[in-house]
Structures are given as structure tokens and as C-alpha cells.
Computed example of a mutant assay.
Amino acid sequence: MPDASASHLSALRCALTGAAVLAVLYAVCWAAAAAGFTGGSHMYISIFTLAPVASLAALGIGLCWSVAFGAVTGALIAATYNVFSFAEHRGTSNQRSLRA
């Protein structure tokens, strides 16, 4: 029988992961925009700030909001995953009937 804690996601760990991922993604998009590659990166930056795309203000404000939204998203993913833990297939009753 699988350990119940093995299928449980930590909300804190997922929040920290989401915050880190969105912060890195935002920084990469800001760096691309600052270097002149504004193809799609400026659209992502504009989600989090109204400051000029390549400005240091956009970097600071956008990073703060990216971290916040990443943390909330990660925590929501973990909470939702844990709520649906009832849907996990344990397989123990089927294995017993196959052995008999």
C-alpha cells in the first residue's frame, strides 16, 4: 500500500517553487526586452507592471509581483492536488482478487 505522505504535496514547497520559476522567467524576459528583443517578452512584463519595459522600475516591480503570483499559484496547485487525492488508484483490492 502506498504511503499517504508520498502523494501529498507541500503547499510551502510548491509556493516557493512557483515564486522562483516566475521570478526567473520574468528576469529572463526583462533581460531580453532590455537587450532589444521585445518580441513576446514585453507582453509578459506588461502583465506585472505599467513601467517602461526595459526600465529598472519594471524589473523591481515586476519581480515582486511575479514572486507573489508565483507563490499563490504554487500554493493553489498543491492545495488542489491534495484535495483530489481521493482519486488516487491504490490497487490493493484488485491485487487481492487477482491472487485468489
Rank of each mutant, 00 (worst) to 15 (best):
A54N: 06
L59G: 01
S93E: 14
A51I: 00
P52V: 04
G39R: 11
A75I: 04
S97A: 09
S55V: 00
H42Y: 05
H42N: 13
S55R: 01
L76C: 09
L9F: 10
V67P: 00
A4K: 11
C14L: 14
S41G: 09
H8P: 00
N82C: 06
I77Q: 11
F86K: 11
V28L: 12
S93P: 01
A58Q: 00
G36P: 03
H89M: 07
S10Q: 07
V28M: 03
L9N: 09
G60F: 02
G60R: 01
A100S: 10
H42D: 14
Y26W: 04
T73N: 08
T38D: 15
M1E: 11
A51W: 01
V24F: 04
L22W: 05
L76P: 03
I47V: 12
A31R: 12
T38C: 11
L12C: 08
S46A: 14
G62T: 02
I61P: 02
A57C: 05
N94V: 13
W30H: 08
A15K: 08
I47L: 12
A6I: 11
W30F: 05
L56C: 04
S10I: 06
T92E: 10
W65E: 01
F37N: 10
F37Q: 13
F69A: 06
Q95P: 02
A11D: 03
V53W: 10
S10P: 03
H42K: 14
P52S: 08
R90E: 15
A11M: 12
L12D: 01
R99D: 12
A33C: 11
L9Q: 07
L16P: 02
G70T: 05
R90F: 08
N94A: 15
V24G: 03
V21M: 04
A57D: 06
G74M: 04
A57W: 04
A51K: 05
Y81L: 11
Y81P: 00
P2R: 13
P2G: 05
L56S: 08
C29Q: 04
C29M: 07
A32E: 10
L50A: 14
L56H: 09
Y81K: 13
S7I: 11
M43R: 12
A32S: 08
H42V: 14
R90L: 10
H8Q: 12
Q95M: 12
S93I: 11
V67R: 00
T49I: 05
T17D: 00
W65F: 10
F69T: 09
